[in-house]
């Protein structure tokens, strides 16, 4: 059996990764909840954000955490523009079109990245990359701890925005009742674009938290989007609390599974959970039965 002294650091490690997963999944579930589409470009857009953080560091010497005030608004603007002027325009009101457009965007972005930056895996090194702190006997790296705190903070801000502001209420209202939203004067196209923008802003923040302890290459988004998709299904499609809880669950399962089965098989647990959820609770942990 596993000893607690090994298990605890592994769980802690899983929680820190899980917080970033939750942030990525929150963006995905927000876009799904409002637009009723799976954003296939989510992974590719995370990749773009990671390159953004990378090049800000390489060319301007900007610390990844200092890139937050640049990357979050930049990704928001990209998302707003994409939805308003590309995805929304091309969809002609049909959900399946949106699906294909985001898939197409993902392919274009990935190959553009391959063309521009080649398939090299790149990392950055900061003064704190290999610094660790001890928590109850477990060693954890500073970048992971920062990612955990940062991702939680962003999630909290996002949940507050959704719960307490008129924009947040409008986003939730449109998710269930578009016609009614129009009748109180909510500009549906604008709120769609805001939702997409906020979803991508989450990716911008996630990229800043990820890069100090992670890497970037043109395919880096694929692994994340698969996990984020699992989290969204696990938590319940469109459920914000579900994305948060699902992120932590998946993070811990991956980490503990890796400990047990080895790094390469660690993700098996995630997909076993995925299949179990689909079989026994298809609406997800927090999803409403429809």
């Amino acid at each position: 059996m596993l000893e607690l002294s090994i298990l605890f650091p592994s769980v802690l490690n899983g929680l820190t990764t899980g917080a970033v997963y939750a942030l990525i999944a929150l963006g995905l579930t927000l876009i799904y909840g409002v637009l009723h589409i799976i954003n296939f470009a989510h992974g590719a857009l995370l990749m773009i954000a990671l390159y953004g953080v990378y090049f800000l560091h390489q060319s301007l010497g900007l610390d990844p955490y200092a890139s937050l005030p640049v990357m979050v608004p930049a990704m928001f603007a990209l998302g707003y523009g994409l939805q308003r002027f590309v995805i929304g325009r091309a969809s002609h009101g049909k959900d399946e079109n949106i699906l294909l457009v985001t898939l197409g965007l993902a392919i274009v972005m990935e190959n553009l990245a391959l063309y521009l930056w080649r398939s090299d895996t790149r990392t950055i090194e900061t003064a704190y990359t290999f610094t660790t702190v001890g928590i109850l006997g477990a060693m954890i790296s500073i970048p992971k701890l920062a990612a955990f705190a940062g991702a939680l903070a962003v999630c909290a801000v996002l949940l507050l925005l959704l719960a307490k502001t008129d924009l947040g209420r409008a986003i939730r209202a449109i998710a269930k009742e578009r016609h009614g939203a129009k009748l109180v004067g909510i500009d549906v196209e604008h709120v769609f674009a805001m939702s997409f923008g906020i979803g991508l802003a989450c990716l911008g923040a996630a990229a800043c938290f990820l890069l100090p302890a992670y890497y970037v290459n043109p395919q880096v988004g694929n692994g994340f989007v698969l996990i984020a998709f699992t989290i969204v299904v696990l938590g319940g499609m469109g459920s914000f609390a579900g994305a948060l809880a699902g992120g932590f669950i998946i993070g811990v399962v991956e980490s503990v599974g890796g400990l047990w089965l080895g790094e390469s098989l660690g993700q098996i647990g995630i997909f076993l959970i995925f299949i179990a959820v689909l079989l026994f609770r298809p609406q997800g942990l927090f999803g409403a039965r429809t």
Binding site: E177, G180, A181
Partner: peptide
């Protein structure tokens, strides 16, 4: 509107 069209989740 007809059918009320309130926001059920709010």
């Amino acid at each position: 509107p007809e059918g009320r069209r309130i926001f059920p989740n709010l």
